[in-house]
Structures are given as C-alpha cells and as structure tokens.
C-alpha cells in the first residue's frame, strides 16, 4: 500500500498541482455560486426579521461569514508558513502568499459590514472595544505581511521572514475570540474575563449549541459554506497565478542570462 504522506507530497508538487487544481477550482467555484444563490435568496425572502435587530439581521448573512473567513484566512497563512519553515515545501509559501490578499479582503468586509450594522443597532459606526480593535489589528497584520514581502528583492528571504511574522501574529486569533467571551479552562486554572464590549458573544459556535432560530441559522450556514468555498476557489486560483509568476520569473532570468552571453560573444568577436 502506498504511503499516504508520499502521495500527498506528490500531489503538492507544483507541476502536478497545476494539473489537478484547475478542475477542482472550477467545481468548488460552481458549488459556491450555487450555495450563495440559495443562501442569499433565503436571506432576503425566507428568513424573517429578527425580534431585536429587525431587518438589519440580513447584514449578518454577509458579516458573519466575512468575519469567520478573516480569521480562517489568517489561520491558513500561519499554517502554510509553518509548512514552509518546518518542511521547506515551496507550495507552502505559494499557499501563504496567495491567502493574504483574500484574507485581507474578507477582513475589510467584516469591518465595513460590521460598522454598517453597528450604526443602526449601536448608534455608532465604531467603538474602540476589544473585538473591533483586535479585528482591525488583524487587518493591519495582513497589510504588514504584504508590505514585508514586497519590501525585499530576495524572494527566499522574504518568504522566510514573512512566515516568521505570520506565525508570531497568529496570537491575534485567540485574542479575537477571547475578547468577547473570555476564557475558562478550569482544569488548567485559567479564568480570563471577557472585556467590556458592545459586540455580542458568538451565537452559532457555542458549547451549548446555536442560539439562533433555524429560520435564520440555516440561511446563515448556507451563506457561510458558500463564502468559504468561494474563498478556497479564489485561493486555488491565486496559488496557480503565483506558480505561473515564479515560472515567468525563472524564464525571464534565463532570457537575461542568454542575452548577456550573446553580448559577451559579440564583444569577443568584435
């Protein structure tokens, strides 16, 4: 029986990745489009008004998936960075680099849609509380990763330093979670209180089950799955683009070397 790790390594070969990722990307994108069509139809035409939020609950169908994907995107960047630093796999760096702009976009959307929900519900677009501020820090972490990578010409060094920063920055993820709900691990003696915040605790991912009525929960879950699949389709596309960019750079270097050799030959003949 073939070694599963060996098989996975073969699939992660950039050339093989380019062959299997295209049909997978298209399938995921089609599935995402279908789920989002159903989810957004239900969000507007099936889900009722919330008894407290009224019609603004419809913002949640884009805000909550954006917030989840903002965090998942950073988790993917950190995991890929770990893969680069520990296993030195070139596709891990491709994955980390490709996930950053997509995660940045969803973090931006989480911040903006949250603000647009906050104005009618809280009476303000923004408060400097722990949840909102920590997500803003996540947004700047993404920007920092992009800035650091683009500030260096040495691609190998840039990828390693960016990977280190990504792993250090992963501390923001539990901070975002703890900022509203606190942390209680009795058997470790950890009791962190939640911060004073306007942001409500999680209503879906709770140890005692979701606190949302199924008429709103189902459209939310369908939208979340649709946006998640859309994220992965875009991530696969961004990875494919990055592999093409590296091939192009390699070919341009060969072209430059060839031109230099020709110049040297011409000078010698002259």
């Amino acid at each position: 029986m073939a070694n599963p790790l060996r098989q996975l390594e073969q699939l992660a070969n950039p050339a093989r990745f380019m062959s299997w990722s295209r049909p997978l990307m298209i399938a995921i994108a089609v599935l995402a489009a279908g789920l989002l069509s159903v989810g957004l139809y239900q969000a507007f035409f099936v889900a009722p008004e919330d008894y407290q939020q009224g019609q603004t609950v419809r913002i949640m169908f884009v805000h909550v998936p954006s917030a989840w994907l903002a965090m998942m995107g950073y988790g993917l960047v950190a995991l890929s960075s770990f893969g680069l630093l520990v296993f030195r796999h070139p596709l891990a760096d491709v994955s980390a680099k490709a996930a950053v702009p997509i995660g940045l976009a969803f973090t931006f959307l989480a911040l903006v849609t949250g603000s647009l929900w906050g104005k009618p519900m809280w009476g303000t677009y923004w408060v400097w509380d722990a949840r909102l501020t920590s997500v803003l820090v996540l947004f700047f972490m993404y920007l920092g990763l992009m800035a650091l990578r683009s500030s260096m010409d040495d691609e190998l060094l840039a990828s390693k330093l960016t990977a280190v920063l990504a792993i250090v920055g992963v501390v923001i993820l539990p901070f975002i979670k703890i900022s509203v709900e606190g942390l209680s691990i009795p058997w470790l003696g950890i009791e962190l209180p939640s911060w004073n915040t306007l942001h409500q605790p999680s209503s879906v991912m709770r140890s005692d089950g979701p606190k949302i009525h199924p008429s709103i929960l189902w459209p939310l879950l369908i939208c979340a799955l649709g946006f998640t699949l859309m994220f992965f389709a875009m991530h696969l596309k961004a990875m494919r683009n990055e592999i093409l960019r590296r091939r192009l750079n390699a070919m341009m270097q060969v072209q430059v070397q060839r031109a230099r050799r020709e110049d040297a030959t011409n000078e010698a003949q002259a």
Partner: peptide, 26 residues
Amino acid sequence: LGKHAVFIWASYGIVAVVLTILIGWL
C-alpha cells in the same frame, strides 16, 4: 427592508464590489 434599508444595501453592495474586484484581479 424598512428604515435601515440603506445600511443593508450598502453592506451587500460593498461585498459585491470587493469580491468582484478580487475575482477580476485574479
């Protein structure tokens, strides 16, 4: 969408614009 319709449409509008730009760029 009631009196807060502008906030709801603005949310969906910005999501559509950002994701369209992202997909177009890719």
